[in-house]
Nucleic acid binder design. Structure first.
Length: 152
RNA sequence: AAGGCAGUUCGUUCUAUCAAUCCGUGCAAACGGGUAGGAAAGUCCGGGCAACAAAGGGCAGUGCACUUCCUAACAGGAAGGUGACCGAAGGGUUAACAGAUAGUGUCACAGAAACUAAACCGCCUCGUAGAGGUAAGGGUGAAACAGUGGGGUAAGAGCCCACUCAUUUCAAUGUGAAUUGAAGUUGGGAUAAACCUUGCACGUUGAAAGACCAAAUAAAUCCGGAUCAAAGGGCGGCCCGCUCAAUUGCUUGCAAGCCGGAAGGGUAGGUCGAUUGAGAUACAUUGUGAAGUGUAUCCUAGAUUAAUGAUAGAAGACACGGCAAAACUGUGUUUACAGAACCCGGCUUAUAGAACUGCCUUUUUA
RNA sequence: GGUCUCGUAGUUCAACGGAUAGAAUAGAUGUUUCCUAAACAUUUGAUAGCAGUUCGAUUCUGCUCGAGACUA
């Protein structure tokens, strides 16, 4: 089965409000966001204030595949769909982390490889990338607290 | 049965768990239903639709080019004609199939000569310095001024004759391209995917078109202009022609406002366009056919950072192996090409595998 | 989504439809030098691919492939 013991069983839905679709925020994400690269997956992320978020969720994501690397639309679609399923199944972990630190973020997950991966190969890379991302979230809390201290 | 040619169709199915999107019901939770292709592709043609305020004409430009028909239209399709080619046969393939007698250009090297010309070798005559005649033969070339045979001649030549080929005119047949026949004071390369000529067609842009709502605004600056005219904008690129916006004051060249533009600033969310259409299927009917007409039935993707999926299992299919073969069984694969972006009609290109139809040849059996 | 442009030696560029597709530079080999550099000589291309037109295509035409630009 897909659902493993260490994963908390919660909703696996992936609606419109969890997807990033605002043009301005996307531009900010790619200009000033931070990159976590774990070939062939590349994740850009950017922490936002709660009032900047456009929806009730803690994170918004966009998933894409490079047209330069994958010429055929069929293979791009396939990679995007696998990544979407992986995010859908693993996002509760991300939400837990964000809940602990009371943070909000937007992120983009981009497939930048030149050949196709299957679901379980992609799963391995995706978990590694997520682990790096969680470390970054833990660091962020410290920076945020110090920033709050300065402003106060 | 095997092989070949031509054509048509399909191009996995089911179950479980978790999802996406649209529609419907519902206060909500939720439930029910729909959800990618034959090419959705390339963007090569043709249309619909929308904007460009509003008449035209000419030139330039672009495209097409045997005939007749089909179609909203087309460089598409159907039925034919002609040439070339393939096949043993049934038959098939292909054509950028108007014009070289409107004009211009080009035809390298070789060759004597590459276009209204020309004599290198050869042949013949006079004659032996040479002059003249000759395109039959040689050699060159991708191409040498109709071909074959005979007559004729000094030698030759469509110079003459017969047949053939091309071309022109006439007649018959056909809607027509053409075909068949007859006749001639006809016989003068190739190239138009070189310029071009003739005929026909064509505005430009492209759904990021455009319409509406919401939100946000910004003045100041620079350039030009205001009804005689000029300049500027528009009517496809140019020309002709046509046409268009905006005024008051007073010191008459300045002020204020106005019109057009430049640059800059702000906003950048939503709805419509946008999925019922030259629609699909079935039957009847007209037509050789593409297709037309009529009746009935059906509604069959509609996303917008972009849905139509992911994983697991089963069946089926295919490949390889075991067995003389089949059944059976083991292993592997889950397939090829490929993903709607306003919508249609075509064309082109890609495509694992499977099924069917027609025809031909060969062999075997009755 | 739409509209266009361009593909020639490893690289940067040439070439009216006409011998064997040139030039610079890089690479390789040799000469020279005690060695290196420089210099000199020699050498290296399926004109992106497949068809067609033509006597003959880098050039003209069609299709395919690749690269790039523009477009609220």
């Amino acid at each position: 089965m897909l659902i493993r013991g260490n994963e908390t069983v919660s909703s696996f839905t992936f609606g419109k409000e969890e997807r990033l679709n605002n043009d301005k925020i996307i531009a900010r994400l790619y200009q000033s966001g931070i990159v976590v690269s774990k070939y062939p997956i590349r994740i850009n992320y950017l922490f936002l204030k709660p009032d900047e978020m456009r929806g009730p969720f803690r994170a918004q994501v966009l998933i894409n595949a490079s047209k330069r690397k994958l010429k055929k639309a069929v293979s791009r679609n396939r990679m995007k769909r696998i990544l979407r399923e992986l995010y859908r199944h693993k996002k509760s972990l991300l939400y837990d982390q964000l809940q602990k630190k009371n943070a909000h973020m937007v992120l983009s997950v981009v497939y930048g490889g030149t050949h196709l991966l299957d679901y379980w190969e992609m799963d391995r890379v995706f978990e590694k990338a997520f682990r790096v991302l969680f470390q970054a979230i833990e660091k962020y809390e410290v920076e945020a607290e110090s920033a709050e201290g300065k402003t106060d």
